[in-house]
Simulated assay, not measured.
Amino acid sequence: MTSIYSLLITYFIIILWILSFTFLYRKRISYMTGMMIAMSTGMTIGLTFGIVLGILYSDQLFKMTVISMIIGGMTGVIFGIQFNIIAVIDGFMSGIMGGMMGVMLGVMIPNDTINTVINVFAVFSSGILFLLFLLIQHDIIIKEKGWRKFFFAKQLPLFLVVILFFILSNQYQYPIPRADIDHSSHLYNSTHK
């Protein structure tokens, strides 16, 4: 049985891998690729954390929406600030949108499909981040030797971390079923005039 912490640690390793790659080579990455990096990371991370927070705290929709919007927006800003103001705005807005959509989806997931959704979004989010890594590699040419060449010029090390994340997410089982929450108070009742 895999813990949620091992999943989060592996996911943060993938995120930090992409962040360090963009930071080290930011001068050689084109502005269009920089905008794509900010938008993709903001949206993907906002969506992923929104889904997780929506599943874990489905009774606190507003708070989790704000938190996931902040996580996604700040991620987009952190990745975009390395390039230009357009990338910052693009990453921020994409992160906010991803955070909102993620929480909405996380709250609506029935108890019997939670593990399936976690597996699907583990594949989706880490796959998008790996494709982003390939995009950055295509945009620049790495001539260094040593650890930079091992971590950033080759696809295999990050690919193995992504595969590890797939395996861990497949073994993870959501431990406690959520209590059914009565959302009927959110509906408009025609008797209140």
Rank of each mutant, 00 (worst) to 15 (best):
T2W: 05
L7I: 15
L7Q: 13
L8H: 15
I9A: 13
I9E: 08
I9Q: 08
T10G: 15
F12L: 06
I13D: 02
I13L: 14
I14M: 00
F23G: 06
Y25M: 06
Y25K: 15
K27M: 08
A38W: 00
A38M: 00
M39K: 01
S40Q: 00
S40E: 00
M43Q: 02
M43V: 07
I45K: 04
L47Q: 06
T48R: 07
F49P: 04
F49S: 07
V52R: 05
L53R: 13
Y57P: 09
S58C: 05
S58Q: 12
Q60E: 11
Q60R: 15
K63M: 10
S68Q: 03
I70Y: 04
I71W: 00
I71M: 03
G73H: 08
T75L: 02
T75Q: 01
F79G: 07
F83G: 11
F83M: 05
I85W: 13
I86P: 14
M93V: 15
M108E: 11
I109Y: 05
P110I: 12
T113N: 08
T113W: 06
T113D: 08
T116H: 06
N119A: 08
F121N: 15
A122I: 04
V123S: 10
V123G: 14
F124Y: 14
S126T: 03
G127L: 00
I128A: 03
F130K: 04
L132I: 05
F133W: 09
L134G: 10
L135K: 14
H138R: 14
K143V: 06
G146L: 06
R148M: 09
R148W: 07
K149F: 07
A153G: 09
K154H: 14
L158K: 00
L164G: 04
F165R: 00
I167T: 04
I167M: 02
I167Q: 00
S169W: 01
Y172D: 01
Y172W: 00
P175W: 03
P177G: 06
D180F: 05
D180K: 10
S184H: 10
L187V: 06
L187A: 10
Y188P: 12
N189T: 12
S190F: 12
T191H: 13
H192F: 12
